[in-house]
């Protein structure tokens, strides 16, 4: 065995300690930099979509040396993420803390009444938006969204079973929106994670799902699942064929299919309240560099993400609008906790 190749661990240890020393000596410069380990909080458990993305970012930063101090991922998923958000809300002025969000930024406070909202934190940047696709089992007779919609209408209430992740969160919100459009109630079955939902659909324990692309793409490629439509205003841009010569871009939008519903999930990064502009700028810079790496681009492509990137005022406006949308969707569906 060649001696020159160190174990990845020792080299990381070395790198970390060297970087720590480097960070110390250059801290006199005007530009703000984190002075100690930065905690990257995931308001969800290990293994989910947000966790994956956070660890991806951690890995990219480590591999390309994008930050002077190490970034560590911490899961605080209790109470549908409330634990993580409350932690950040309570760490006013701590610049060494970040949090990645899911839709639970909007849904958890509404559904549970736990007091936090996005204005309790400092928005850094929108990293990407996660798409939602309407899926059915490939063995089912429904070739298009309109086939399935007519089957829902013909079958009557609770005939069709929609599986989704969690309760009163994004998947159930979309389900409620579909119910409002069709006027027919579906049975919503909540599962722990998106992977489970996709597998349950393959096993035909449920009749449809609104999985994110990355959760169901493997089953689509294997010919087990069929995408009906995507819950976005325009088709996905990815033209590479995935299954049977079809690409993500071949999936019609749900609006085209007569189901006028759009929903995107925010993958954004926030800081605790009271962060200075310099601190925000620093992290925006790091995240921009992350977005430039080939690993990130590949990941975006595999997961058919919407790669919108927003910061500052534009991001805040988007957040305001998204908060309103969630409130009205959840109020209509009766998901808002009575206080």
């Amino acid at each position: 065995m060649r001696k020159s190749k160190q174990s990845p661990l020792t080299s990381t240890v070395l790198a970390a300690s060297i970087l720590a020393v480097a960070g110390w000596s250059t801290s006199a410069r005007a530009e703000w930099k984190p002075t100690k380990t930065v905690e990257f909080i995931v308001p969800a458990g290990t293994g989910g979509g947000a966790d994956q993305m956070a660890r991806m970012i951690q890995g990219i930063i480590q591999k390309h040396n994008l930050m002077a101090e190490p970034l560590v991922v911490i899961n605080k998923g209790g109470g549908a993420g409330a634990e993580g958000f409350l932690d950040v809300k309570g760490s006013k002025g701590d610049p060494n803390k970040l949090i990645i969000t899911l839709s639970n930024l909007f849904t958890t406070p509404l559904a549970t009444g736990v007091p936090f909202k996005w204005t309790d934190m400092t928005p850094v940047a929108m990293l990407a938006l996660d798409e939602f696709v309407f899926w059915v089992n490939a063995k089912s007779p429904y070739q298009s969204a309109s086939d399935y919609i007519s089957a829902i209408k013909a079958g009557g209430p609770n005939k069709m079973k929609m599986g989704g992740t969690g309760s009163k969160q994004e998947d159930q919100i979309i389900t409620a929106a579909i119910e409002q459009t069709t006027g027919v109630k579906m049975t919503y079955v909540p599962y722990k994670g998106g992977g489970d939902v996709a597998a349950q659909l393959v096993g035909q324990h449920i009749t449809s799902s609104v999985n994110n692309p990355i959760e169901a793409v493997a089953q689509w490629r294997a010919g087990e699942l069929r995408p009906l439509c995507v819950f976005d205003t325009q088709r996905l841009p990815y033209k590479e064929p995935i299954a049977n010569g079809k690409a993500w871009s071949d999936i019609p939008t749900c609006k085209e299919a007569g189901l006028d519903i759009g929903y995107l999930m925010l993958r954004g990064v926030f800081m605790p309240p009271g962060a200075t502009q310099e601190q925000v700028d620093y992290y925006v810079g790091v995240l921009q560099k992350v977005r430039e790496t080939p690993e990130w681009k590949d990941f975006m492509k595999t997961g058919a993400f919407n790669t919108s990137f927003m910061t500052g005022k534009q991001f805040e406006d988007w957040l305001k609008k998204a908060e309103e949308t969630h409130r009205s969707l959840m109020e209509k569906a009766g998901f808002v906790a009575k206080s």
Partner: peptide, 28 residues
């Protein structure tokens, strides 16, 4: 073979596969 995480650890490994650009599932 299916992309179903059979345990919490398997769920994390599954995330790893996606990060490395592999798609778990019947075709793997």
């Amino acid at each position: 073979t299916l992309g179903i995480p059979g345990s919490p650890t398997a769920a994390v490994l599954l995330g790893g596969l996606l990060i490395w650009g592999l798609q778990p599932g019947p075709l793997l």
